[in-house]
Computed example of a mutant assay.
Amino acid sequence: MITMERLEKILRDLGLDGALVEVFVYLAGKGKSSLEEIYEETTLSRRAISLALGELESAGAVKRDGPDYAIEDARKALQALLPARLEELKAEIYSYRPVTKKEECPMVEAIRDEATVVPAFTAKHIDAALKSVDMVSRSLTWLDDQSLNAARAAVQRGVHVRVITYKHPELLPDARALTDAGVEVRSHEYSKDVRFMIVDGEFISFAIREPPKVTQPAYFGLMIRDRGVCRNMLEYIFEPAWEDAEVVEKYRI
């Protein structure tokens, strides 16, 4: 018989985020529950529970019966989660290459790509964060389910995530979603002037949108891996803006 502690360890070893693990363990113990029942008996938000249930249901680990979600057999449910995770691990293994001196990450790197890759780029660097993520972004076009889940998982593992954005009614749903995920969100006019993300005080990425063209717009990114640059950006740019920024009550859940 699988104990709840053992079950939780297996799920975390599979690389699943905290909300998904908590929902799975809860249902495995209860057998069947509604979203509201899970919300009342856990510390998770409704949005986090809904996302976790959707992912588990898509994988075939959870079955839905009206308003209820059920795990009838924990072993079979775990097996349902394995195929997708195994493919991810295979991809990571096959893409691995030892880093030689010639392939070391440059201190400064410029990239250009379609605007559609910005959310995945953001999620990737949030996933890599160990201590902090500090962002200034007028709009929240980088936010999608993947980057939101990355932010939530980062907060759950103790990463301090802060976002300075622009105060606008259209941003309200996304700002609330970030707040619900544990991200600190504030508003400042300065977010109209610059877009950047600092990770762990060691890496900074600037996003620069190209002038409008007939073709699909692209983003030009400048990435700098230098603690001194990041330290100065935090001290002279981000922290003063953060202290002066407005805590928008409507952004709170």
Rank of each mutant, 00 (worst) to 15 (best):
I126E: 08
I126T: 12
D127R: 13
D127V: 00
D127H: 05
D127Q: 13
A128D: 06
A128R: 11
A128H: 04
A129S: 11
A129H: 11
A129D: 08
L130M: 15
L130Y: 05
L130E: 15
S132I: 03
S132L: 09
V133Q: 14
L140R: 10
L140F: 03
T141W: 05
W142R: 09
L143K: 02
D144S: 08
D144Y: 08
D144R: 11
D145W: 10
Q146N: 13
S147A: 13
S147H: 05
S147R: 09
S147Q: 12
L148A: 12
N149L: 10
N149Q: 14
N149P: 00
A150V: 03
A151H: 04
A151S: 15
A153D: 15
V155Q: 03
G158K: 06
V159F: 02
H160Y: 09
V161Y: 12
V161A: 06
R162Q: 12
V163L: 14
V163G: 11
V163F: 04
I164T: 06
K167Y: 08
K167P: 07
K167G: 08
P169T: 01
P169Q: 00
E170D: 04
L171Q: 03
L172Y: 01
L172Q: 03
L172P: 01
L172A: 01
L172W: 01
P173N: 04
D174T: 00
D174C: 02
A177F: 01
A177V: 06
L178A: 03
L178R: 02
T179S: 11
D180E: 14
D180Q: 11
D180A: 11
A181R: 06
G182R: 03
G182A: 04
V185W: 01
R186C: 06
R186K: 14
S187H: 04
Y190F: 07
Y190N: 02
Y190E: 00
S191T: 06
K192L: 04
K192W: 04
V194G: 01
V194K: 03
R195V: 00
F196S: 04
M197E: 07
D200Y: 08
D200A: 11
D200W: 09
G201M: 06
E202H: 08
F203H: 12
I204M: 12
S205H: 03
S205I: 09
F206P: 08
R209T: 13
R209E: 15
R209H: 13
R209L: 06
E210Q: 13
P211Y: 10
P212V: 15
V214K: 11
